[in-house]
Design a binder for these strands. Structure first.
Length: 423
RNA sequence: GGAGAAAUGGCAGAGUGGUCGAAUGCGGCAGUCUUGAAAACUGUUGAGGGUCACACCUCCGGGGGUUCGAAUCCCUCUUUCUCCGCCA
């Protein structure tokens, strides 16, 4: 959520930047400014009314104490009007504030100035590419065929137990999953991130804090009886650690990492693009989250990109980095880079990580602040990224590392798997 | 799941209708003293709105109510603790 004060002071900039999202926000922005003015005017009037009523009450108290009951009772009647007007003013205030907030929830984050214009993922800018695409043998298979051939993932079984999109990993497939999780967490903690194990269900306030609620409710599984939501990403419980928190500047940056399963309803399309591990209702992911001083957040962002690159280089997977265009950058993000790994047998790129700087957009909802060196409170910047999402990394490994004899395991993973080939 | 108790500032903990945004202690910060540190002493120390700055307003788990006036009384929800039951 953008800060109204920022919108008020940078009206033109906000409209101009939101245009990158192909959104004409002029009307929303002006309405927000208008509502904010109304809100403050009502607030002032209400404050004055309450001030008057407070001082009368005090006076009445004094009069009772001194035994001047008649005078006190006379004053009591005076307060009736004040009560009525303060009641109606409070109602007006609530109405206006709600209207303002409803509006603010709908305004997406303003993209960073470097975000390219564009309308869809086709306009994303490839900014980096690494790793040779392997030349596969003639009988190369897509990962879902490999999974069957080597009996490491059972999609039908998952279908029986839960439904489509809930694969069962088994044998060396299960072990490889565990290896990847451990490897990613080790890489992250070596880089200074503190490891957390977080709840997999969150309450409404948390869903709201990171922006999944109220609008993107359909994306999450909702446990209605307890009003809890299954997390779509560790970002939700991880970032909500800092809801309503005031840090000291010296505590920044805060860096955390955590492994969680992720649950997504996304009743999406069917066909080859969602086959196998490409798109699931439940998948595993290791996430990195940072809370940064605003002056350092883009520096930190670059550091996260480098960090994810290191992991992919070690896994020796062919990948590229895309800078998302205005049309593709998510609602809460100011700048997002996506990592995609090349899935050789499918001949397509698969998104395996998304690193974003939300600037103050989440912090404003979360009320995540820090006390700066002058002792003033400022909103912090939040960032997060996947390092990494498991299924597509797994798909990438299976497809790119397949040989006639079996699927080789990337060297860095062998200490974690305890085997060097799936055959 | 059943019974009981509780929820106050960073923490501990007073306050049961009238200058209470809240005693006191600890912690934090600043100062005095000291070569420096500790101790001791003095001062300071919650959040949000509002203002150029003051003033002023709101907040004592959340929501609602009673009253001229509520941290304090009533209703309700949530959470925590203790005991019992169940249990990885």
């Amino acid at each position: 959520m953008l800060q109204v004060s920022f919108i008020r002071e940078h009206r033109d900039l906000v409209v101009e930047r939101l245009a990158k999202r192909n959104l004409d926000a002029t009307q929303m922005v002006d309405e927000a400014i208008q509502l904010d003015e109304e809100r403050r005017a009502i607030q002032t009037e209400l404050d004055n009314t309450l001030a008057e009523s407070n001082s009368l009450s005090k006076e009445i108290g004094m009069l009772f104490k001194s035994g001047d009951v008649d005078k006190a009772n006379a004053l009591k009647t005076k307060t009736t009007d004040l009560k009525e007007s303060s009641k109606s003013l409070s109602e007006q205030l609530a109405t206006t504030s709600n209207a303002l907030n409803e509006l603010l929830y709908k305004i997406p984050n303003i993209p960073h100035e470097s975000v390219p214009n564009g309308t869809s993922d086709e306009d994303n800018e490839e900014i980096f590419k690494e790793g040779a695409i392997p030349k596969l043998h003639d009988n190369a298979l897509p990962h879902w065929e490999l999974a069957k051939k080597y009996d490491i993932i059972d999609f039908e079984l998952g279908n029986k137990i839960a439904g489509a999109g809930f694969p069962v990993y088994k044998n060396k497939g299960a072990r490889l999953q565990r290896a990847l999780i451990a490897y990613f967490l080790d890489k992250n903690t070596e880089a200074g991130y503190t490891e957390y194990q977080l709840p997999h269900l969150v309450n409404e306030a948390s869903g709201f804090g990171t922006g999944q609620l109220p609008d993107k409710e359909g994306q999450m599984y909702h446990v209605t009886e307890d009003n809890l939501y299954l997390i779509p990403t560790a970002e939700v419980p991880g970032t909500n650690i800092f809801r309503d928190v005031i840090l000291d500047q010296s505590e920044l940056p805060v860096t955390i990492t955590g492994y969680t399963p992720c649950f997504r309803r996304e009743a999406g399309s069917y066909g080859a693009h969602v086959r196998g591990l490409n798109r699931l209702h439940q998948f595993d992911k290791v996430e990195i989250i940072r809370v940064e001083h605003p002056d350092n957040s883009y520096n930190a962002f670059n550091g996260m990109i480098e960090h994810v690159k290191t992991i992919l280089n070690e896994l020796k997977l062919p990948y590229r980095i895309l800078k998302l265009c205005g049309g593709d950058v998510t609602f809460a993000s100011a700048l997002t880079y996506d990592f995609e790994v090349f899935s050789t047998a499918q001949d397509r790129w698969l998104e395996i990580s998304s690193v974003s700087n939300f600037e103050t957009f989440q912090a404003n909802r979360l009320k995540l602040r820090f006390k700066n060196n002058e002792g003033k409170k400022e909103l912090a910047h939040t960032l997060n990224g996947s390092s990494l999402a498991l299924p597509r990394v797994l798909a990438g490994i299976l497809e790119n590392y397949q040989t006639e004899k079996g699927i080789k395991i990337p060297d860095v993973l062998i200490p974690y798997t305890g085997f060097s080939i799936i055959d």
